[in-house]
Structure formats: C-alpha cells, structure tokens
Design a protein around this nucleic acid. Structure first.
Lengths: 222, 222
DNA sequence: AAATTATTTATGGTTTCCCGTAAATAATTA
DNA sequence: TAATTATTTACGGGAAACCATAAATAATTT
C-alpha cells in the first residue's frame, strides 16, 4: 500500500476526516495534510529533496480566497505543478464537481488516476479509490461513471471548444475567422466555422448559437 | 439564545462539526441534525405538533443524489416547505455558493436571515451569524458582503430575467414577443424587447446577445 | 384640459447569422 | 498518376439581429 500520502483541502474538518479514515481503513502509513495549494507544493518539493517523496496526492479542486497571497489557487494548478517535479505521482481528486465533461477533461488533461465525488458516500468511495489506484487502476465515483456512460457525450475537439469559447466571449464569426487565421488554426473560413457550428447545434439539439452556448455552459464545457 | 436548532447538511462529518461548535461556542441548548431535506421537514412537523418547535434552521443548499426517493431535493425547497408550516422560522444558509446575485435572491425570495459561505472561516462566521440572527439582525459572510457592495449589481427586474431566460433557451425575439403577448406581459413589442436588451448589453458591457447570456450565466443570474 | 415628459411601438437600413449549393483544394485509394 | 473521396472555401438568398429615428400612446405636471 501507499507509504506517504498528502491530502490538500481547505476545510480543516474534512481534511481531518479524510486523514483519519485513511489511517483506519487503508494501510497507508503516513498521511499529511495541507490547507493551501502552495503549502502542498512545498511539502512535495521538500519530500522529494529529502528523498522521501509522497506517492499519492489527494486534492480538492476549489479553494476559497483568503488573506494570504497565493501562487497556486486551484487543485488543477497544484497537480500540474507537482507533475513537473514528480511526473509519476498518482493523483486522486476529491471534489464537489459532478459535471461529466469536466471530470472527463481531468482524466485527459491532468491524467489523474481517480475521481471521487464529494457527497454522502464520498469517504467510502475515497477509501475504495485509494485501493484501486494503488493497483494501477483508475477510479470514478459510480454515480458519475454511470452518467458519463449513458450520457453519450459528443466528443468535442479543442477546435470546437475554442470556437465556443470565442462565441461566448462575444466575437462575431468574422472575428473568430480572423483570430484563427492569425493563429494558423485551420479551418479558418467563415464557411467552415458555420459548418462546425451547425454540427455542434445539431449534436446538442440547440435552436441557435445563443442556445448552444447556454447549453454548453450548463454542461460545464466552457 | 435559541433553544432548538436543526442543522441540515448531507455530509455527516460537516454536520457533526457544526453541531459540536454550536454547542461549544453558542448557548444553543439543543442541536439536531438531518442528512436529507425530507427528514428535516418531518422533524420540523413533528416538533411543531409536539409543541416544541425549532426556532432556527441551518441548512446547506445542494444535496447529492442518493438511492432514496426524495420529495425535497434542495435547501431552497426545504426552506419554502417549512415556511409554509412555520412562517416565522429563522433561517441561515451555510453553503459553497458565492455568487452575489444568487445570495441576494435568497434574501429576497426566501427571506432568509443569514448567509454563511463555506470556506476557511465558515464555522467561525456561522457562530457569529447565529448570534446576529438571534438578535434579529441579518448576517452575510464579510467577503461576500464586500463583493455585493462594490460590485455595483445592476438591478435586474423579473422582466429582464425572463427575457434572458428565454433568450438562453434559444427563442428568437419574435418568439419572445409572442410569449409576452400571450401571457399579458408588457412591454411586448419587438422594439421594446430590443431596447431592453440593449440596456442589458450596455450595463453588462456585453458585445452581443450571446456574450450577454454567457456573462449572466457566469454571474449566476440564470 | 393642455402641455410636458416618459414609455412603448413602428419603420427602415445595415450587418450578421443561417442554410443550401457549388466550386476548389487536399487527402486517399486504385 | 489518375480517379475517388473528403474537406475546405466561396457565394447567394433569406431570416434574424442590430441600430437609429420617428410616431403613437401613456403618465405626469402645470
């Protein structure tokens, strides 16, 4: 089982709860805690330098603002930062976020090993996930995994996302065309942009561009 | 000080934490807990029938789905339901939601007495809020109150919200006009709808309708 | 009641979006 | 390399949105 685990989470009570339950119900030897992403990062650095690296990170995603000046303000930033100094680190996210598209992106972008949804069964699932991840499997909260399967998530390319992003920022198709041209992103004709948009509208069953942007925002894609 | 308080919150650990701290740091005599809105409602009903009513409700807003069939699925529904049988009940919401517009609406729509933002100082603020509410004052988490003040929140009328809502649902201005006409909502000419929309765009500094809808969604207005 | 003011509605011109078709170019296959 | 197929681009007509101005109506003031 994992030797050394760090739990990052800004609510002290939850943090403690996790630490306790990991001690009790998994064979993890050492559980450390951090309430700020910056602290977590420093602990990782120090552990690495002392040749006693962590082998699992469990982190929340959102951290409330505070008086302290912060470098890393989100769990994702923390993960990215740690991966730079310790690429093989195993990561489990433990958060409220339950929008399939978002969670999917965490596995893709951050290559996380597990995702556990905070909620009534959260702690149980977290214990499970630690076991799975230790055996090199991935873990997703069952309810969420369910939603992600049946919900035939139409696969959005980066291109589509960028397009939607710019639309939601109020750019006209013409402005988007120019942007694509400047940045050598292809296809970049008005026609192609329209065609792509039509495909998106068809897939999401959106009545028009406004509707499309509103829907994708609700789905957490933007 | 309050005699009898109910805390509704689906994470057991947090629930316990709140109960403990209320016991320790306020003079509240009796603190009960509920993990489901439906349970909370039943406890209120029973207490009322037994002539030992609660005099404060502290509740979260969002509750994760579970296996159980539920009537009331959100804190807001719970509040509304309880207000029907016990109109004078004091209510404090304790939740992650930190969008000014939303919180504002809770004070307006649900006439809540306090709003505490979960976060690093959440529990401290919660203790404070109980004191304030007991003395018939309202309470809002300082950081949030701050944001709500400086953030010159352009006051949206119901009309505007409805308009934005329909826009985000993909209706054309013409369709919205017809809807307004059918439902005797005035003004209901295309011209007026455009004018209203222009005012909204100006106030939110939105470039076009898509941008406007995207922004208001981000602000939690829709 | 008349005059002033504010609000709502109407109208027309311009731009952008929407949608279909066709041409041009790129990629794949025979 | 020629032929086929897929992708990208161009173009045009009609609808909706955008914008400014003017007319009509409602509300307020004198």
């Amino acid at each position: 089982m994992f030797e050394k685990v760090l739990v990052t989470e800004d609510l002290g009570s939850i943090n403690h709860g996790i630490a306790n339950i990991l001690h009790e119900r998994t064979g993890v030897k050492e559980v450390q805690q951090a309430q700020y992403c910056d602290d977590a990062y420093l602990k990782f650095r120090r552990a690495l330098r002392d040749d006693k690296p962590f082998d699992l990170l469990i982190t929340d995603l959102s951290f409330k603002e505070s008086h302290r000046q912060r470098e890393l303000v989100s769990g994702l930033q923390l993960i990215d930062a740690i991966r730079l100094i310790q690429p093989d680190i195993k990561v489990i996210i433990y958060s409220m976020e339950d929008r399939p598209a978002k969670v999917k992106s965490f596995f893709k972008e951050q290559s996380i090993n597990g995702y556990v949804c905070k909620g009534r069964y959260g702690l149980n699932e977290l214990v499970q996930s630690v076991g799975e991840v230790y055996h090199n499997n991935t873990f997703i909260s069952p309810l969420l995994a369910n939603a992600m399967n049946k919900n035939n998530v139409f696969e959005l390319k980066d291109y589509d996302l960028l397009l939607l992003k710019h639309l939601s920022d109020g750019l006209t198709q013409e402005e988007i065309r120019m942007y694509f041209k400047r940045n050598h992103i292809s296809p970049n004709s008005i026609s192609s942009i329209e065609k792509r948009l039509n495909k998106l509208k068809y897939n999401f069953k959106a009545k028009n561009a406004i509707h499309l942007v509103a829907m994708t925002k609700d789905l957490g894609l933007l």
